[in-house]
Design a protein around this nucleic acid. Structure first.
Lengths: 188, 188
DNA sequence: ACAAGTGATGTCACCTGGTGCCATCACCAT
DNA sequence: ATGGTGATGGCACCAGGTGACATCACTTGT
């Protein structure tokens, strides 16, 4: 056994998720989170750049996997086809963390500050996918539009998925949403 | 003449825009902004809820005008057609403030904190447009997707517009972008 | 004309998020 | 033993943000 309790980061995440859920995000203090994890405020800020970031650890991984899906898509695929592949990749990740998705989503929804952070993560994801699409030889505007469309579809699908009593697979919900988008874009 | 200098809000906005531009957003203190406007930190926070909001005054107006455009669109229009009408309305507003658009945009681009705020304003706008589309009898998912697509197109067009040496009209750039979206959504 | 009221501002104390700097302390390599 | 090394604690400090109260010029009712 090491000289400190292991997994300080994970302990901080758990403590934060619990306290944010119990008292609300704003009513929770960083000092309280740290104390619950057996650490100090100062140490909290060594693991997370701010009070919000503790809820968004792992978003780079999702980004990487979705980008990888675009890079691996067949050359014959359209821009939105590649976005579909990226959404399939996201589905895998989401199903892995389904257990925490609900509480985490409710916390984020309850705080504008946290929604802002979620939005900028989505924007970062969109930018990464846009770069990947450009690398697949799509035009600049087309790449950006398709990428942002992808995150929009992802969010719409996510909200349906996280509140779905039937536990429908994310992949299916996302595919339906993407199909609906194609429909409204081509109609009229 | 009143007992206080008039237009406190406008003075604070000007001071903030100037200081953010000169020293950068993070290096500027609310107390400095207030001092430059001949006021106090406390008064700044009576006009703006936080240090970021001073750059986003008037976003509700844009929202209202775009929503109004959707409400006024012909019943025969498609969802994206109504979004197009909303973008035309946005174009009017943007041309009015073209003078400040460039500096303001550069400041926002330079700070993640400000980008977060801009993103949540866009999300609010999208939600408002989605409500308007639902009122026009579009389905839930279609309304949300079309609305978010609209803000995406708006942002893509805005970036091209604000940096365009030819001063092309926003309306034209936005219409082109929307047409491109329709293309990528229908191809493949 | 005088008193009471009103509304924008100032003042002050305070809390919390966030950071820089240095101390500590267990373990590890030589 | 001796000297790193790396995660942590402690402390001082700044800035954003808020609540409570004071001020002060002008307005309104009588």
């Amino acid at each position: 056994m090491g000289r400190w309790q292991p997994d300080a980061r994970a302990r901080l995440q758990e403590a934060a998720l619990a306290l944010y859920g119990e008292r609300g995000y704003e009513a929770t203090t960083v000092a309280e989170i740290a104390e619950r994890a057996g650490l100090t405020k100062r140490t909290f800020f060594r693991y997370f750049t701010d009070k919000r970031e503790v809820l968004f650890w792992g978003s780079e991984l999702l980004e990487q996997q979705m980008v990888a899906a675009i890079e691996a898509a067949p050359a014959s695929a359209s821009a939105l086809g590649m976005i579909g592949a990226a959404l399939d990749a996201a589905a895998v990740r989401f199903e892995e963390v389904r257990e925490f998705a609900g509480p985490r989503h409710r916390i984020i929804t309850s705080s504008p500050e946290l929604q802002e952070r979620e939005l900028i993560k989505a924007a970062s994801l969109a930018a990464a996918m846009a770069r990947a699409l450009r690398a697949r030889r799509f035009g600049d505007t087309a790449a950006v539009l398709a990428a942002h469309t992808g995150t929009t579809v992802m969010h719409v699908a996510f909200e349906q998925w996280v509140e779905d009593p039937n536990q429908t697979a994310f992949q299916q919900i996302a595919r339906d949403a993407l199909a609906q988008l194609r429909e409204i874009a081509s109609t009229g």
